[in-house]
Design a protein around this nucleic acid. Structure first.
Lengths: 271, 271
DNA sequence: CAAATAGTGTCTCTAAGACAATATCAC
DNA sequence: GTGATATTGTCTTAGAGACACTATTTG
């Protein structure tokens, strides 16, 4: 054995001897959508939205789930996540990042299935619902993500007349967001926990400016940038203070906006 | 089909139809070790150390790898990671957190194997090397983790006369640390990238005080706490300033140290 | 007393929050 | 001019870094 060459070893080696799990990638895909403008030349407000798909088959038939699917041979799990989003929306995400692995043994009644959960960002996507077996309907849900008096986390997802809710408790671990579902309504599998963790990551990325630009076009105004941060973090900051902080992350171009009914704004680019 | 019950569906459903990857958990386990004291009543300096195992079998025979192993049916991937560390050291880690999924299709010559990479912390562990087939030797390596002039990342691991090195480039992505190996010497698989990402997580956790306590006993002095942060971040801070910042994360007990050849220190507990 | 660590007070500098004031466009 | 957003400047406050100084133990 000790004299065996690597060639010989690999030839005799078989992974088939061990039982293996199925692996999926589930993606929380966020985008910002404009509310209808109330006044005639006001910049429309934005809402943070999450893509969910209504399950057409068992299990959790009729409930709403994150887009996702099985890892295929020859692709990385990131490629799998991007592929699933592209299949569903026709758009490539501008960002994709891992948020966790979900591997509880009872998480899927179909069997031993572990899932890599991702957070991703889409720019202006048109939803193209698939007519397939397991995806009956795809919709954007407005996201509300808050804490209650007991410091539990409340997740509320709204799309027209549909409202999905979950109450979760954050695992006080060492860093990474990690949630346990206390109660939920209308959300499939353990996806409510994935969504909560994704929201934490997204807010973290918006706070330190690392994910702000994924929501913006190539060039943008500082006001647009501020609106992105305010919408994701659900806060409002004073404009001069925002500019001061944002300055170190951008470089100015020599272009300006025009035709907006007010003073033109300088356009900036990510540094 | 649409009238099928969930029971019927699950009975007819088979995951066997799809090819599945093997899944492993690889763990970067850190601890702080004392250097031998130079003076007679000085507190010994500490070094950050990482557990590596010399591979006894192919592939990467004779090179050093993170402890890890295959996910078994009936356990979560976190349990798998804890089990692998416990098997190797006989100690339960005081912290364990996911740092990434490595799923490049060519990352393991044995076949389709994806790996969850974890960062963990051990308190005062005795290494108990396994006499098994694929683990010839287990050792603690002192960690050096720096940047060079081109802003590339240099990883150096030392244990006695053995020195392992790697040069990596950080992927300028959206948040999560992610490294590409430029060159390496003596480190198996893609584990150098896992170690680099783990170091980033560890430093992040030491900076915001979320992982400091995993390196400390139940009660501790502020100086011990400061030493942990300084060692992990490889910085030195002024003591009064450290105390001010640390104060909000601890509560004092009514106990004091004694017999140390200098003024006793108040013992604190994690808040 | 010497050596070593524990702990307090304070000065300065910088970053963040609040807010006043001015600028420029479309209509 | 009016309504809207863009942009600059400044006052105040909170926190971080630097540093001088005092306190308490063992040998």
């Amino acid at each position: 054995m000790s004299q065996e060459t690597e060639q010989q070893f690999l030839k005799s080696y078989s992974l088939e001897d061990y039982e293996r799990p199925s692996v999926t990638a589930d993606v929380a895909a966020f985008t910002l959508r404009s509310k209808e403008g109330d006044s005639y030349r006001k910049e429309p407000e934005k809402v943070l939205s999450l893509l969910l798909i209504r399950r057409g088959g068992h299990p959790f038939k009729g409930m709403w789930a994150l887009p996702g699917g099985f890892l295929q041979k020859g692709e990385t799990i990131e490629q799998c996540a991007v592929r699933e989003i592209a299949e569903e929306t026709g758009v490539q995400p501008t960002a994709i990042m891992l948020t966790g692995i979900y591997s509880a043994t009872d998480r899927d009644p179909r069997g031993w299935i572990i899932s890599g959960a991702f957070t991703s960002v889409l720019m202006d996507p048109e939803i193209t619902p698939e007519g397939g077996d397991d995806a009956a309907d795809a919709r954007w849900f407005d996201v509300s993500f808050t804490r209650d008096e007991q410091d539990d986390t409340l997740l509320k997802l709204c799309s027209g007349d549909i409202t999905l809710t979950a109450r979760l408790r954050e695992n006080t671990g060492c860093g990474q967001p990690d949630f346990r579902i206390l109660e939920q309504d209308g959300i499939a599998f353990d996806h409510a926990a994935m969504i909560a963790a994704a929201m934490c990551r997204l807010r973290q990325g918006a706070e330190n400016f690392s994910m702000i630009f994924d929501f913006l076009p190539e060039t943008f105004t500082l006001s647009q940038m501020q609106q992105v941060q305010e919408t994701i973090l659900n806060i409002s900051v004073l404009q001069p203070n925002f500019r001061r902080k944002a300055a170190e992350y951008v470089v100015e171009t020599d272009a300006y906006t025009s035709g907006a009914g007010h003073r033109p704004a300088k356009l900036y680019r990510k540094k």
